[in-house]
């Protein structure tokens, strides 16, 4: 089963894994933030990622915009979508109980997926730009340019979000809120307003994450479940609400995926990653809740 590989192929896989890991970090961040800070299990997160991919496609096809510009546009667009979702749904229903929230957000997933199929059909789409099939070669290691750009976008956003949470008073208030909601409220922190901000930011990361994924992988309205599983895996391993731990977990998953694809036949890759999700949940004992102690 295990295949023999050259050193250069391994290094290639390592580099690809790290780049992919940055993108996985980005698509998982929102899930980690909403779960860690608001206690909301946003199962519709992956459909927002998928919408990000289609935003890039539409902007490319209609306006000829490069995905890099689409990533910038996605920030306010998806922030607004997140704000609307939080105000119209999450704040009313989802926080009454986690089960109710889960069902409501599953409904959101079905609606978005259905609408996407109506709009774009189930055909697989590819973002094709001038640098799609180009790569940089360094000491025999080829790095695909789209993957490099996607990883750079992800890294910038992850660093910006980390800086926001660590260096601004709003960020510190969000961290306070994630640690003790009642204490934050009675101290003078408007936790409703901050929840709106957190959900907006989480949705923005999902949208930009969708743009970056579309630069690397073909996509259709139904393949987002894979990204949901990936994101949950990153959250389970990295813990809730902690950007730095999410980054480490994202890089680990990226590396495991690319190294598995080099060391094992292709069909084993997903099996290995999903197996890792099961093992991580078992080791954690309490599943996602077990990750909470490391929040922010």
């Amino acid at each position: 089963m295990l295949t023999t590989v050259s050193l250069s192929l391994l290094v290639q896989a390592l580099v690809n894994g790290l780049l992919l890991g940055l993108v996985y970090t980005l698509i998982s961040l929102g899930l980690s933030l909403t779960l860690g800070i608001m206690g909301v299990v946003n199962v519709a997160h992956s459909t927002l990622i998928m919408l990000g991919s289609y935003l890039a496609l539409e902007l490319l096809q209609r306006l000829g915009l490069d995905p890099i510009i689409s990533a910038v546009i996605a920030v306010p667009v998806f922030f607004l979508i997140g704000v609307l979702l939080e105000r119209l749904l999450i704040s009313r229903v989802a926080r009454t109980s986690q089960t109710t929230g889960l069902l409501v957000l599953f409904g959101v997933l079905v609606v978005i997926e259905g609408a996407a199929i109506l709009r774009w059909t189930t055909d697989t789409q590819v973002l094709s730009v001038s640098y799609t099939n180009t790569s940089l070669t360094l000491d025999g290691i080829a790095i695909a340019v789209p993957r490099l750009i996607a990883a750079a976008i992800a890294l910038v956003l992850v660093l910006l979000l980390d800086t926001f949470l660590r260096s601004t008073l709003y960020g510190k208030a969000i961290r306070a809120m994630s640690q003790n909601l009642d204490a934050a409220r009675i101290s003078g922190i408007d936790t409703d307003r901050l929840s709106l901000l957190v959900f907006g930011l989480a949705t923005a990361t999902a949208g930009v994450g969708g743009v970056t994924l579309a630069m690397i992988f073909p996509f259709d309205p139904q393949d987002h479940y894979r990204w949901l599983a990936w994101a949950f895996l990153v959250v389970v391993i990295g813990g809730l609400g902690s950007i730095r731990n999410t980054l480490l977990a994202g890089l680990l998953i990226g590396l495991i995926e690319t190294l598995s694809s080099v060391l094992f036949p292709f069909q084993y890759v997903y099996f290995i990653v999903y197996l890792l999700l099961v093992v991580a949940l078992l080791v954690r004992g309490q599943g996602l809740a077990g990750s909470q102690s490391r929040a922010l």
């Binding site: 208030a173 306070a176 640690q179 204490a183 101290s187 003078g188 408007d190 307003r193």
Partner: peptide
């Protein structure tokens, strides 16, 4: 006592004024 454990002592003092 419900302090915000990962924030510093000073940060604990400042967050109540986030909207003030």
């Amino acid at each position: 006592a419900r302090v915000f454990h990962t924030l510093t002592v000073t940060q604990n003092m400042l967050v109540p004024l986030v909207h003030a």
